[in-house]
Design a protein around this nucleic acid. Structure first.
Lengths: 164, 164
DNA sequence: AATGAAAGCTTTACACC
DNA sequence: GGTGTAAAGCTTTCATT
């Protein structure tokens, strides 16, 4: 299959997920390949979209973005959705927006400096998007885990699951 | 102040958030500084922990991690928390774990291949951690926005807010 | 697909401002 | 703090297997 990801790719992905600037020499040592082979594999992982990008993780607290909130948003009129999504796209305080099952329409992950900023944000969402009827906000008191790192199951386990 | 982040730093952070491998020559052109100055600033941003790391973003769909779920977890006995957090730390399917306000204790963000894997995961959490009484799971049907990029307010706006 | 070697970039260190 | 320069390090390409 064209977009197959073998165990070597998984190891490379795991290392680059951890440190996106790991030198190819080090990746090569980890997987037992020459630098040029690693280069070719990484290039292909990028071309295939398996690697979507490399990004610096910036400290929220260093930016004083101390308030993390999850906001459920609901409406009755389906026409509300289009305007809501336009608002979501242009609002940098919204880190994530998920269409979820259950009684609510969407779940937002939002970072602001203070509760006052969050209040202003909530007012903005409800006021700026006609049709939004209700919101429910949960504040994150702490986040023991917060990573974008996907589970790259160890090669052996993966092989076992695939029935090999 | 020691950990002050000026407008030049913000521009650098915004560019590195977008592309963690932006060459210093390009960063320098964007902020009007020499390559060596950019190098020094980035070095300091790393040392100060403003940049927490650089990570490759791996495509969930390429790994067939097609199911994204938010799981609320609740218990009555406070002693449950310690074991729960140990379980969270060692479970790679859990991408995020937040201690939240409201009727639930924690909110988890979880990625699995299928509903079957999610079912196994939920059974594992409840069974493996004695004291966990209830869970509520929301499935993400789609995610119009999902970024770790923090809002780096434009320099002018920031300056205005700071009263300068 | 993988390899080593050469060429081309990028980062880093440093002397100076 | 910033700058340019030189050395070191990393990535990329390519002829070969």
């Amino acid at each position: 299959m064209m977009s197959d990801i073998d165990d070597i790719d998984r190891t490379i992905l795991a290392l680059l997920q951890e440190n996106g600037r790991t030198p190819y020499a080090e990746l090569g040592k980890a997987v037992g390949l020459a630098v040029s082979s690693v280069n070719e594999r990484v290039k292909k992982l990028n071309e295939r979209g398996v690697i979507e990008g490399v990004h610096a993780a910036v400290s929220a607290s260093a930016l004083r973005l101390d308030l993390l909130a999850f906001v459920f948003v609901g409406w009755n009129d389906p026409a509300t959705e289009e305007q809501f999504l336009a608002r979501v796209a242009s609002e940098p305080a919204i880190l994530e927006c998920h269409h979820v099952t259950g009684t609510w329409n969407y779940l937002l992950k939002v970072r602001t400096h203070t509760t006052r900023d969050l209040e202003a944000f909530l007012g903005g969402i409800v006021k700026a998007v006609p049709g939004v009827l209700r919101t429910e906000t949960l504040i994150a008191l702490s986040s023991p885990k917060e990573t974008g790192h996907l589970p790259l199951v160890p090669p052996t386990e993966h092989a076992r699951k695939a029935g090999r």
